[in-house]
Design a protein around this nucleic acid. Structure first.
Ligand SMILES: [Mn+2]
Ligand SMILES: [Mn+2]
Ligand SMILES: [Zn+2]
Ligand SMILES: [Zn+2]
Lengths: 139, 139
DNA sequence: TTTCTAGTTTAGAATTATTATAAACTAGCT
DNA sequence: AGCTAGTTTATAATAATTCTAAACTAGAAA
């Protein structure tokens, strides 16, 4: 996988989603996507990292707005697994997770690592939006 | 399955978990467990039902305390699937769920209705606490 | 029975995560 | 350069939950 350290790519990406490439969004893009590996984060953690010893701070409201916009645009995936706090994933491919109840961390499980040989039919008029397994683990 | 409409059973049950059989706890037990079918609920919903046109109200703090105590005692199971709100289940057997993103309701999937033919090994030093699948559905 | 005390309930305050508000700012078209 | 819709920001509001501390009570002991 290629590391994107050029802003032009993000500018295009944002424009293609009708999101103006503001300096705040580009800074967040750079932080989230300029890396070899995908990762999981909470808004709280992202806010800390983005504003860690930086002179120009991005407001918490913007962090929330941007995470929501990126999720709607399909750049991020929301993982609902924890009590009272949303997690986000820069890995947008369909995949499963371990959720460690001790340190409250998510770990990816590749889609092929879980095989569902029997899955129920959804109720009438409803369709399956998502079938991703969360395996809760602890010491 | 037998409907428990006698309080003595709940008194024993509570005592066996080192929970004093107070009138609040017994009222909540009666509401939660005196029925043919298990069900899912939020604390907000339980609070409304318990206090619906009743003269003696149970405080919201007690509803929270009791739900937590019952969960710790194993009378209830917590289902973490929704953003910002916990769900509880009077079905304490291991089983799976549909979660309808439209009306935010849970529906049981019997344990035998999902077969996992391949499951990954948890990380070193960690063990699987729970492997229950939530299938998100929508119209 | 009455007394005692740890456990429980309660109203209200506090906390945490998140969303809403509205004024100031800015990307980017004209 | 001027305009304007989109964006950022500080701050307030909201929602779910947890905390606090005073009042109450179950039930053991006297
Ligand atoms: Mn919340
Ligand atoms: Mn909360
Ligand atoms: Zn992931
Ligand atoms: Zn259930």
């Amino acid at each position: 996988m290629i590391i994107n350290d050029n802003l032009k790519m993000y500018v295009q990406k944002l424009r293609s989603s009708n999101l103006r490439p503001t300096k705040q969004r580009l800074k967040i893009c750079k932080f989230l996507f300029d890396r070899k590996k995908t990762f999981h984060f909470t808004v709280e953690a992202l806010n800390k990292k983005i504003n860690k010893n930086k002179t120009t701070k991005v407001s918490l409201a913007t962090i929330y707005n941007t995470v929501e916009a990126f999720t709607n645009a399909g750049y991020l995936k929301e993982i609902l697994t924890s009590k009272n706090k949303s997690y986000y994933d820069t890995n947008i491919k369909s995949h499963h997770h371990f959720y460690d109840e001790g340190n409250k961390e998510l770990t990816d499980i590749h889609y092929s690592q879980i095989k569902l040989s029997k899955v129920p039919v959804p109720p009438k008029g409803k369709k399956i939006k998502n079938l991703e397994v969360v395996i809760r683990i602890q010491k």
